[in-house]
């Protein structure tokens, strides 16, 4: 399968602080990828690099099979982006901004714009500067969705939305995902949003995508284990991220569940209890 986004050896530093350190990443069509990372991990830098908004030091990036900084205008129009901070002209009214942006796209859907403006109760006659942060974010989302993009990149899209607004935004993304074969990359701190809509989870840590996997597989393999054994048995838990010995046995969190090892434990009559974890805990364990 051809990748929609293909990143190889991406590096980027600000002054003398290196942010991305030889990062590689491949995104397949139809994926809905949630990107997690601590504050300052470089999520925004990574997303901006993909879009050629932020310069990179070295590495290769291709989008729709074309080099990222030489995208044809046709391919550029296939990308929708919602930045973390509003960089639109704030003295324009919502209507004017929409009409201005519309000129750049041949695939612009007025229908989508009208529908979302009324559903999200935005007064389009108001200037951007007069809107609340949540309303501005909604306008940015509308601008990104209007050209009916095939690749959507969101940088913390839900950050200034209230719970109802966030849920409605998720609904809109889910409708897009079920209707068309759209690919979505979104960075977030809200793991429960990611758990609802993403099929893959990526973790950016120490300048690299340190973890990238199917969300369901992640929940089935990154688990807490309690091994009911005595110290003398000298049992080592494979893929251990963090472990503790106590009188009742061993406790640990693994990055992967080793089936062969589990079978071996069963043979030795060592009881192993498996406790699944939510994504927030998984994220904390993987970046600890």
């Amino acid at each position: 399968m051809t990748c929609i986004v293909n990143v190889k050896g991406l590096t980027k530093s600000y002054k003398n602080q290196s942010v991305l350190k030889g990062l590689s990443w491949e995104i397949e069509p139809g994926d809905v990828v949630g990107l997690l990372g601590k504050n300052g991990a470089g999520k925004s830098t990574l997303l901006k690099s993909l879009l050629n908004i932020s310069d990179i030091d070295s590495g290769e990036i291709s989008i729709f099979g074309e080099q990222y900084n030489q995208l044809s205008s046709k391919n550029k129009a296939r990308i929708g982006y919602v930045p973390q901070e509003n960089d639109e002209i704030s003295w324009l009214s919502v209507n004017d901004l929409i009409n201005f942006r519309k000129q750049f796209y041949s695939t612009w859907s007025d229908e989508k714009v009208t529908e979302l403006i009324s559903r999200w109760e935005i007064d389009a006659t108001k200037k951007i500067a007069e809107l609340s942060p949540g309303q501005v974010q909604r306008v940015l989302i509308i601008l990104a969705l209007a050209p009916m993009p095939e690749l959507l990149i969101f940088d913390e899209p839900a950050a200034s939305l209230d719970p109802a607004g966030r849920r409605d935004f998720l609904k809109e993304i889910l409708t897009l995902v079920s209707d068309e074969n759209i690919t979505v990359i979104f960075s977030t701190h809200i793991t429960s949003d990611l758990e609802r809509i993403a099929n893959k989870v990526a973790i950016l840590d120490k300048g690299k995508i340190c973890y990238f996997n199917d969300l369901d597989i992640t929940k089935e393999s990154v688990v807490q284990l309690t091994v009911h054994c005595k110290k003398e048995q000298g049992i080592t838990i494979p893929y251990l991220l963090r472990g503790k010995l106590h009188s009742q046995g061993q406790y640990g969190v693994v990055s992967q569940l080793d089936q062969a090892w589990l079978a071996e434990m069963k043979e030795q009559a060592v009881e192993v209890t498996i406790n699944p974890m939510g994504l927030e805990d998984i994220f904390l364990e993987l970046t600890a």
Partner: peptide, 11 residues
């Protein structure tokens, strides 16, 4: 419950 450790498809 999306935030449970059990994948949604399994639930």
């Amino acid at each position: 419950s999306p935030s449970s450790g059990i994948p949604i498809y399994k639930q």
